[in-house]
Design a protein around this nucleic acid. Sequence first.
DNA 1: TTGAAAGCGCTAACAG
DNA 2: CTGTTAGCGCTTTCAA
Lengths: 336, 336
Amino acid sequence: MRQTTIIDIAKKLDISPSTVSRALSNHPDISQETKARVRAAADEMDYRPNTIAQNLQKKQSQIIGVVVPQVKHYFFAEIMAGVTDVAYQAGYTVMICQSNEDFEREKSNIDVLISHRVAGLLVSVSSTTTDCHHFQRLVRRGMPLVFFDRVCDHVEASTVVVDDMEGAFRATEYLIGKGYQRIAHMAGPPFLSISRLRRTGYENAMRQCGRPVHPEWIIQAGLNEEDGTSAAEAMLSRLNPLPDALFCVNDPVALGAFVKFKERGVRVPADMALVGFTDGPIASMIDPALTTVRQPAYLLGKSAAELLLEQIRHRESRKNPVHKVLKTELIIRQSA
Amino acid sequence: MRQTTIIDIAKKLDISPSTVSRALSNHPDISQETKARVRAAADEMDYRPNTIAQNLQKKQSQIIGVVVPQVKHYFFAEIMAGVTDVAYQAGYTVMICQSNEDFEREKSNIDVLISHRVAGLLVSVSSTTTDCHHFQRLVRRGMPLVFFDRVCDHVEASTVVVDDMEGAFRATEYLIGKGYQRIAHMAGPPFLSISRLRRTGYENAMRQCGRPVHPEWIIQAGLNEEDGTSAAEAMLSRLNPLPDALFCVNDPVALGAFVKFKERGVRVPADMALVGFTDGPIASMIDPALTTVRQPAYLLGKSAAELLLEQIRHRESRKNPVHKVLKTELIIRQSA
DNA sequence: TTGAAAGCGCTAACAG
DNA sequence: CTGTTAGCGCTTTCAA
């Protein structure tokens, strides 16, 4: 598609391209009359500035690069909404890549975004990411970078997360307070910060209340519904006596377990209390409704984007990483 | 962030930038030895090609622009997953904008994407979009453009949609076959193609089975859960006798109505059969599980992206818009 | 097999 | 107030 350029306008008006450029950017030096003529011509010729050329010249773009594990997960989709809104307000556009929880793809996504000379990077690492050296290099070279939700330790970058440990602690504490005796935990992929923190929150609450932490009560699962279902299957066949309460690393896993329990006639909450983490749109819709830890997803995306913009605009802020922790809230419903 | 350029490499190796460029793109003219040296240096210096410069030179980018009403809606998030995957495979990146169902923002999104000289555009129009002239202009000027799900009539662009009318027809037909007597419909925003088609499908099924189409049985709603809730509220207070079945424009609306029914003691399906459209992740989780028309969201995104790539790569295909219609499937569960 | 030079569209000194 | 010029990083003729 052939687009009108500043030169086309200049020719038509018989003035120089620089005058057109200045007129378009409302430079004070240019006369009102010229500005008016230029604007009229630009309008008529359907001129759209070539951001590519502008960016090349300015040696940086107004693009925010985002890498998420899976766009379709409600949690990330909601975060994206926050990011996109903030970016739009600030005149930035977002370029989005999904890693599909694959480390290699994550690296290649980053490369692509770097090649596009994005102004900054927003990333939530994949569950298979164990090596964070490429992030360290980026930061060292001055690339504005903010991790959200799933962070890389040992990287001097700003982060925005929720109080995973605290949220998990409160949820477990709540179950203990309700008198449940055998409280199990379905944990997420071990390398992920969120998995570790939530698990630790669970363990701390147990210990602090004088409960033993039985290793067999910690069931390794993933992050998806299927993982919850299969982990529940395993739990049902292996544990005797069965736990009477289950705190899951996130909603999807809790929902997967819920489905299995229903299928097997395990009543929630009578036989098994159930608590999730996220408070996605499904939580309140199931019966019994899911007790869960609410994460402010939109706000998380918004904050991450704001932090990144701050870093993009102020070089110094890059040196002082900020670690923002958003409050979660235990939403008590019928499942526990 | 200062990035290594082709010139840095050239200086270091004491050869010309053009040689470096050619070596990097594996040009046959360059000797193996030079190529090896260049590649080694590029690696060592952590060189990343400047896509902006490449694009400026090629006068087009490897970016696909996407405009959706709301990224956080499951349906669109899933579509995005399809788009993103296809784009990644083909070496394209996706730039995403959300219109938030606002016509002005939609236009401004398009402007931004055009300014970035995207290779093509994928759009699902907002519910407030009634004027499609800007799209017509784009197409006339040769911009590859594919509408998905929500299309603009009278624009010579390719489209990928599901068989909305057919899906709605089958759903309604099913309700009739089950013996329901007073089948109502909650319709979406009137300007949207999907709203009109689904409504028509409902009406056609009613007529074809010799049922009268009572205007008061068609309740105007929106597309979100809140809309379903308030529409149900209105229905409950205004209609007497109450319908005994309700076909909704989409899942969220059905879910919103479901919540209201539960609250008011209207039993589903005993007092009111309920059918949705989409088959999002909530549908199967509620109790009774929602009977709904399944839309292949991921496939829709994938097809739209493929169609767009085709148009980007082959000029001629732009002249012959393709209209792809994906099959839906009636998923029968317990709510009807 | 390699180098020099021009140009993609735009901005910003510098000059007038 | 406006024009000239150079240059952002890269590719690509045209020459050598």
